[in-house]
């Protein structure tokens, strides 16, 4: 079943004279894990915000085309209604604190209070996400007194706790240590396996290649392609679009080794290892 349908989506920010999103069309199935890649200013964040209705409801601006979430058109809904279904983690972790709560624990509760989660469940969910994002040790700290990475973890925890059907994440691990980043991707993957649809904008291509089912490549607001990581990262024109393939792909391209029986290059560590194993190095 299609969870998200985007048809000819066009969008221009107010006071801007270029299209930030230019005629995008694609569909996403329930439980799919989609990566959005593209150079800076390609439109990744704008697309993310179009899926939660901040574009156009919050920013206004010129909007064309249609976005459907579960068959309901975003343009005709309020952000409040959409927020019950679609959760979003923003790019900048420092600006996602509500400013009305004194502790990390209460900060995570904020969203749950608003969507009417009963207390016992609320507490269970908070404890779960504190553990998932490894921030129990700072739960009583003021949200503003966290390290950058801890703040980003709190932002992710706050949204995951709300258990949205669709999770939109805009570079959610930019400040995380490598282990934390890996844990977050695994957590997101397991959510996707439970049927939650994931949309993730990301510059960490190795992670996109490893975890995403499909990858949407944006350039200048236009969709260049949406396909499997193998297909996308094997494209010859990636660099023209300002994207560098995962390091594993780059090595294999350089060495001219493809995955057995395909025209694709390896995109993950395991794939690269299997094609390079046995070669004399």
């Amino acid at each position: 079943m299609n969870k998200i349908v985007v048809e000819g989506l066009k969008y221009k920010y107010p006071l801007s004279d270029t299209l930030a999103l230019d005629d995008l069309s694609f569909q996403v199935k329930e439980g799919e894990f989609i990566g959005i890649i593209g150079k800076n200013s390609a439109g990744k964040s704008t697309l993310c915000q179009a899926l939660v209705g901040l574009v156009p409801h919050f920013y206004k601006g010129a909007y064309g085309g249609k976005v459907f979430i579960d068959g309901l058109e975003v343009k005709n809904q309020t952000i409040a209604d959409i927020s019950l279904k679609v959760g979003m983690v923003f790019q900048n972790p420092f600006t996602q604190v509500t400013g009305s709560k004194m502790t990390v624990y209460e900060e995570i509760a904020f969203g749950l209070e608003n969507i009417g989660i009963p207390r016992s469940e609320m507490i269970a969910r908070i404890d779960y996400v504190l553990d998932l994002l490894k921030i129990e040790q700072v739960k009583d700290q003021n949200p503003f007194d966290l390290s950058g990475g801890q703040m980003q973890r709190m932002a992710i925890a706050s949204i995951i706790a709300m258990k949205p059907d669709i999770l939109v994440l805009d570079e959610p691990t930019s400040q995380l240590d490598p282990a934390g980043s890996e844990e977050v991707f695994q957590a997101i993957q397991s959510l996707s396996k439970q049927g939650i649809t994931i949309i993730l904008a990301e510059h960490k291509m190795e992670k996109v290649a490893l975890y995403c089912h499909r990858v949407l490549l944006l350039d200048d607001g236009k969709m260049v392609d949406i396909n499997t990581p193998g297909k996308i990262f094997s494209r010859g024109d990636l660099e023209q679009h300002g994207v560098a393939a995962p390091v594993y792909t780059r090595v294999c391209k350089e060495l001219g080794v493809r995955k057995a029986g395909t025209s694709e290059f390896p995109v993950t560590l395991a794939e690269a290892e299997s094609v390079l194993r046995g070669r004399k190095i």
């Binding site: 240590d177 490598p178 282990a179 934390g180 190795e206 995962p246 390091v247 594993y248 780059r250 090595v251 350089e254 560590l269 690269a272 290892e273 390079l276 194993r277 070669r279 190095i281």
Partner: peptide, 24 residues
């Protein structure tokens, strides 16, 4: 310390290269 060697270093190690490789 919750960090890891770079991707290419990991790949080289898996392929049995003895020395530590740092770049593509």
């Amino acid at each position: 310390a919750h960090v890891e060697p770079p991707g290419i270093t990991q790949l080289a190690e898996m392929l049995g290269i003895q020395e530590t490789i740092l770049t593509v």
